[in-house]
Amino acid sequence: MLCLFLAGVLVRVLKMLIPQTRNIGLPMMNLMRFKGLPILQQLHIEEQLLRTSSENWCIINDGTNDPTIVMGVSGKPAELLEIESVLHDQVPVIRRFTGGGTVIVDHETIFVTFICNKEAVPDLQPYPRPIMSWSNTLYSKVFQGIGDFHLRENDYVFGNHKFGGNAQSITKNKWIHHTSFLWDFDVRNMAYLKLPKRAPAYRSARGHLDFICRLKDYMPRSIFIDKTVEAAGTHFSLRSLESEAIETCSETEFRPLTRFLTNEELEAAAALAGQ
């Protein structure tokens, strides 16, 4: 079980040793960057930070490992997945702790997460639409002059094609906004996903391949990540932390909601759908 130690001597030492990006007057935000961190571990980290940390965080994970399906907290496998294909090909399925839709992620997906105290962004009401609007302001800096970028029904799009899907969770004192950016994707993986019954109006019943686009066609990968950090630095005073600030242990009182669905659960969902 994942355990997160963010306080104490280790973090204090890191704060003194690691170069800081300071903007006077802006709220402090810890920045952690990973490459290829397994998506389950990333989501566990995010969930624990949301529940237990009193600080603001930005997490960037450049790709994950094997293709993995990630569903929102209330997602129903029988409605969202081609379960027989998922089971046959042994594609892992995760139910995350936030809302939002279903996505299949792999090493070509870039993840960006903001975890903020409610007072961190001045005048921002801690509700889904204001948070989405704030995120649009931030990413408009990243994509300034590139494509026809805008926020459309909670998706990041170029023109009429989606390349970024968002999910959120709001607690008493904090909120999280995380995004999966489709840098690239394997066409074959899209076949594991059904067309959702609840879809944005602008999708117009288009299939996956007619609905999404690749970020790589608009911007180099490293430039996107650098520009995202730069844009975050206009809203926060960033403090970089090394990944060693996160340790694992076998025992912890924190029990994440995010988990893999078992084959038995998927089989039961498929059987129920077939009735």
Rank of each mutant, 00 (worst) to 15 (best):
F34H: 12
C213R: 01
E79R: 09
T109M: 14
K141L: 15
V9S: 05
A199E: 14
D148N: 10
T64N: 06
R95L: 11
R12A: 14
H44L: 13
F163S: 07
I212L: 14
H235V: 05
K76H: 07
E46P: 10
F163R: 04
I131R: 04
F34Q: 02
E84R: 12
P122S: 06
S74C: 02
V73K: 07
Y192I: 00
T262P: 06
V91H: 04
D148W: 00
E265S: 08
D62N: 13
Y218R: 01
I60D: 07
A268E: 10
S133N: 13
K174I: 07
G159Y: 04
A191E: 11
Q48E: 15
S243G: 05
L14G: 06
K216Y: 07
M190R: 07
A120H: 05
E253I: 06
Y139F: 15
L215N: 10
R12G: 10
I83F: 07
T113C: 14
I115M: 01
K118C: 15
T137W: 01
L10D: 04
F111N: 12
P92N: 08
Q42H: 02
T102Y: 11
E79G: 01
E242V: 08
S180M: 11
A205E: 14
A232Y: 04
G8C: 13
V13A: 11
V73G: 05
F181A: 04
V91M: 12
G147A: 08
H178F: 08
G164P: 03
V142A: 06
V86I: 05
R22A: 00
S135F: 09
L238Y: 07
A191H: 02
C58H: 04
D123Y: 12
V105L: 11
I146L: 12
P256I: 02
V93E: 09
L215P: 15
A205I: 01
N136K: 09
E46M: 08
S85L: 14
G63F: 13
E251N: 10
A201C: 00
S169V: 11
F260V: 03
S54I: 00
W57P: 06
K141I: 05
L43A: 06
T113P: 07
Q125L: 13
D148R: 07
M132K: 01
L138F: 05
G233M: 01
P126H: 09
L138I: 14
F236P: 14
H44Q: 12
R259Y: 03
M1L: 09
V105F: 12
N136D: 08
L6A: 06
P126Q: 11
S222G: 02
H107T: 04
